[in-house]
Each structure stands twice: as structure tokens, then as C-alpha cells.
């Protein structure tokens, strides 16, 4: 079990992770999802004790990573974004070294653990190869095997399928699902399909903040229930968007396409009600004929984009003001 509470990490003035709290139960595969630079890797580095948090606590299996680092790290297997491999060692030497670091004292224990982990990560027949000479996919597997050594209760994988070919990706995903039966797994990814396929729970991180969490299906359903309208109307861009934004109960009006006078946009219903009629009437009243209007289903991808993109209202405001200033000049 992993308990993260009010985790904050600052690098100087930059806040990489901002007050994140979550709990991952035993035997759960949890996906950290977010765009690049959202704070996924920093979060994982703090959970594993590689970095110290600026504020907040992390408890792994009941052990605080700052107060009892040895005990907490003993139940942890970590595969960083770039597998921490020594190029001058063979696969067998490396796994033996990693096993000894994990505290396996006896040589026979280490050999058995290394053989088991190597077989699970699909490294059969690679034991004598120099890590220097391995392909990216195999290096990833060696890192994964090292993370599995000693059967840690918690396994943390930072973008485990990056750089793998599609067949290897499927293989690794199957392995992760298999691991989820006995271990607690946290994996990060920016691939939605991967998270949807593998994880029991999703945490969406954007700009260092936790913006949503839940089961993948549940998250998508929750946001679909809000009802999203997509519409195309004819008229000046500002007039169309202003008319849509003025409809009570509609929010998040965002431009999706602009083709001459044909303006396509989406809008979310704030209260979950159906505002198609009101929107149509408002556009007609503004002198912008409606060309199409439909209520949309949201996939996890839409949820993700909606949650992680910077606020469109704030972005749309600036050009608006400029234009007004320009008008007053005339």
C-alpha cells in the first residue's frame, strides 16, 4: 500500500509537484497519466526516495520514506525512465549486483532471484551478454528484471513501454497485468490506450497537480455525463463564441475548427442538462445560422485533453481584449 499525502516538490522557484495526495491499495495497478512535464517522474522519484519532498509524506507499506528509508526501500522495486544500467557489466553480473543491493546476502539466493526475475522479464539466454551491446528493448527488460528482484511488494515503473516495438509492448503490458495480481504497481505513461488497457485506477496529473482520479471507465463516464455539445455555426468567430458562452449552463466553450465563416466549437454542460435547444436559439438570435449541432460522447482521451490543457477561457480572453482596444483606436 502506498500513501502519498500533500506531496510538494519545488526546484527553486519552479513547483514540479504541487500538493498531491493519493492512496494506492494492495494488488492495484495504478496509472499516472499526464502530458510531458506534468510531474510524473518527479512524483515517482519522490515516492522511491531518490528525491526528497519539499513538503508532504510518502508511506510505503506503512514505512515513511524519509523516516525509515531502509525499510521503505526494501519493499520497493523501481524502473526509472532511463534504466540505471552499468554498460560494462553482463546481464547476470548486473542482476547479481542489484540483488545484493536489495539485501540478498547468499550467493545461491541471488542467483535464484536473478534467474526468476530474468525469466519473468523475458531475458532467457541473455545472461552472458554485455549490457553495452543490448538493444533499447532489452535494456528496458534488464531494468524491469532488476525492479522485480526480491519480489518487492510495490513496483514502480516510469514509462515502461517507451522505445519498445508493438509486440514487446503487448508482452510487457501482459507482464504488468500479471504483476498486479501479487504486487502493487504504479506506472506512468502518456499513452492513454496503455493506461486504459492495463490499469485499475488512473491518476491524471497536469501542471504538477492531481486533476482527476478513478477507474478509467468511471472517469470517462463521469465526464460524459456532463454532456458535451459540438456545433458548427456560420458567422463571425467572436459573435459565435460570445453567443455560445452567453447560454446559461454552458461552459468551456472552445474553438475546434475555423473554415472561413464556418465556426466549429465544443461546449460542456455545467449542470449535466441538455442545452442544445438553448444554444441553437441563442446562435439564431445572434444572427449566426446553426449548420450542425450534436451531443458528443467523451473518450478517456477527451477527458485527458480537457483536464490537462490550459484553460481555454483564459487563452481566448487575450486576443479578445486586443481586438477591442484596436476598435477603440479607430
Amino acid at each position: 500500500m502506498i500513501e502519498v499525502s500533500h506531496l510538494t516538490k519545488r526546484y527553486g522557484a519552479h513547483t514540479a509537484v504541487d500538493d498531491i495526495s493519493f492512496t494506492v491499495e494492495d494488488g492495484c495497478i495504478c496509472g499516472l497519466l499526464g502530458p510531458n512535464g506534468a510531474g510524473k517522474t518527479t512524483t515517482m522519484n519522490v515516492i522511491t526516495g531518490y528525491l526528497s519532498p519539499t513538503a508532504g509524506t510518502v508511506r510505503i507499506g506503512g514505512h515513511d520514506i524519509q523516516q525509515e528509508p531502509q525499510a521503505a526501500k526494501a519493499c520497493l522495486g523501481y524502473l526509472p525512465e532511463q534504466p540505471p544500467l552499468y554498460a560494462d557489466m553482463t546481464v547476470a553480473e548486473y542482476l547479481d549486483f542489484a540483488a545484493e543491493l536489495k539485501g540478498l546476502r547468499k550467493k545461491a539466493d541471488r542467483a535464484a532471484a536473478a534467474a526468476r526475475a530474468a525469466a519473468r522479464a523475458g531475458l532467457d539466454g541473455m545472461a552472458r551478454r554485455l549490457i553495452r551491446n543490448l538493444s533499447k528493448g532489452y535494456r528496458q527488460r534488464v531494468g524491469l528484471a532488476a525492479a522485480l528482484l526480491g519480489d518487492p511488494r510495490v513496483i514502480i515503473l516510469d514509462e515502461p513501454t517507451v522505445g519498445l516495438d508493438p509486440a514487446q509492448m503487448i508482452e510487457i503490458r501482459a507482464l504488468i497485468r500479471d504483476l498486479g495480481r501479487q504486487h502493487t504497481v504504479i506506472l506512468s505513461s502518456h499513452l492513454l490506450s496503455e493506461v486504459q488497457a492495463v490499469c485499475d485506477r488512473v491518476l491524471i496529473i497536469a501542471g504538477g497537480k492531481l486533476v482527476a482520479q478513478g477507474a478509467p471507465g468511471e472517469l470517462a463516464a463521469r465526464l460524459t455525463a456532463r454532456g458535451v455539445l459540438s456545433a458548427t455555426a456560420q458567422g463571425p468567430k467572436q459573435a459565435v463564441l460570445a453567443a455560445a458562452a452567453a447560454v446559461p449552463g454552458l461552459r468551456d466553450v472552445r474553438l475546434t475548427a475555423e473554415n472561413g465563416e464556418e465556426i466549429s466549437f465544443t461546449a460542456a454542460s455545467a449542470d449535466g442538462g441538455d442545452h442544445r435547444a438553448a444554444l441553437s436559439a441563442a446562435l439564431a438570435a445572434a444572427g449566426c445560422p446553426v449548420l450542425s449541432l450534436a451531443s458528443e460522447q467523451m473518450s478517456l482521451e477527451d477527458v485527458f485533453l480537457q483536464l490537462t490543457e490550459p484553460d481555454p477561457a483564459a487563452a481566448a480572453e487575450t486576443p479578445d481584449k486586443e481586438e477591442k482596444a484596436h476598435e477603440s483606436d479607430l
Binding site: T48, P69, Q70, A71, A74, P80, Y86, L101
Partner: peptide, 14 residues
């Protein structure tokens, strides 16, 4: 530089 310190610092060694 090789980020192998991640292995050392996340292992149960002081």
C-alpha cells in the same frame, strides 16, 4: 551522468 545513481539511492542501502 548515466543515472545509475537512481539504482543506488532507491535501494535499501544508506
Amino acid at each position: 551522468r548515466n543515472k545509475t545513481d537512481q539504482l543506488l539511492l532507491t535501494s535499501p542501502v544508506t
